[in-house]
């Protein structure tokens, strides 16, 4: 039964003294595309790793599809900003390893499936290339294919397009939306790029620290295909302003806080 994420009273800190999360509550519906944004170091990535099970909560619960605090598993796949492909495998090998080991597919089956996925992400003809022979954008395409290949219920993405140039970034955003449409599943996406967030998400959540709290949430019910059109521009501006104000306000508050400490 897919029911998305339900986080209750989450407490977590890297050290005992500093609690990054203190009774934090959050919910992600199944099939929802949620984007989290916020200042660097506010705890976004940590939150993602908690969702993946790669970090363990001190207390509280993370429920995913009825499982409580599940260890890492193929039902939640993480895509990182940094290049983390298997550099010793070809594009095809990178995509096919998951299906082979996780779903126990035969070599032939996993190959067929992976080839189809590679074609889907626009890498037909590049199956035999090693990561170091591919451009940054192409490598992220392989990364996407590798993530979808294990057919996870949730994909957790940590600024996956952060290091790409603007042009490639837009291409990758479109590609992500398309594939997501076909494979469905939940996506939790972290980005600093507000436009990217507006283009992709069902819901944008602005995190503030620390402890982590939700400064604001914006739902974007509009059809994604329309969001790049001119008619959407005013709405886009409005959302951007709201988020910028939130982030700016926090920046200001932080400075005041520093001033207080100094005086």
């Amino acid at each position: 039964m897919r029911s998305g994420y339900e986080i209750q009273d989450l407490c977590f800190g890297y050290t005992d003294r500093r609690r990054l999360f203190d009774n934090f509550n959050f919910r992600v519906r199944n099939g929802e595309f949620v984007t989290i944004t916020g200042h660097s170091g506010c705890g976004k990535s940590t939150f993602l790793y908690l969702l993946a099970g790669l970090l363990k909560a001190n207390s509280g619960s993370i429920r995913f599809n009825q499982k409580v605090n599940p260890p890492p598993g193929p039902d939640r796949f993480t895509v990182f900003q940094s290049d983390n492909l298997f550099f010793w495998k070809t594009a095809l090998g990178n995509v096919a390893l998951g299906p082979r080991l996780v779903h126990r597919l035969t070599k032939k089956e996993s190959r067929r499936e992976s080839l189809a996925l590679l074609e889907r992400v626009g890498l037909k003809g590049f199956e035999k290339y090693y990561p170091h022979q591919l451009s940054g954008g192409m490598r992220q395409r392989v990364g996407l294919a590798r993530a979808f290949a294990v057919r996870p219920d949730a994909i957790l993405m940590d600024e996956p397009f952060g290091s790409l140039d603007a042009q490639t970034r837009v291409e990758m955003q479109n590609l992500l939306i398309e594939i997501w449409g076909e494979y469905s599943g939940t996506i939790v996406f972290i980005t600093h790029d507000i436009d990217e967030a507006i283009t992709l998400s069902d819901r944008i959540v602005v995190f503030g620290g620390e402890p982590v709290h939700i400064k604001t949430e914006i739902r974007i019910p509009e059809e994604r295909l329309l969001r790049r059109s001119k008619t959407f521009l005013p709405r886009r501006e409005a959302i951007r302003d709201e988020i910028m104000n939130m982030l700016g306000a926090e920046q200001g508050a932080r400075i005041n806080h520093e001033d207080l400490r100094l005086s």
């Binding site: 993946a52 790669l54 890492p72 940094s82 998951g98 996780v102």
Partner: peptide, 20 residues
């Protein structure tokens, strides 16, 4: 990140050693 991918795949220690 590679170790984390291995964990996401639920690999056995032998598989992790061999594949990662």
């Amino acid at each position: 990140e590679l170790v984390w991918v291995a964990r996401s795949y639920n690999l056995t220690p032998l598989q992790s050693a061999l594949h990662i």
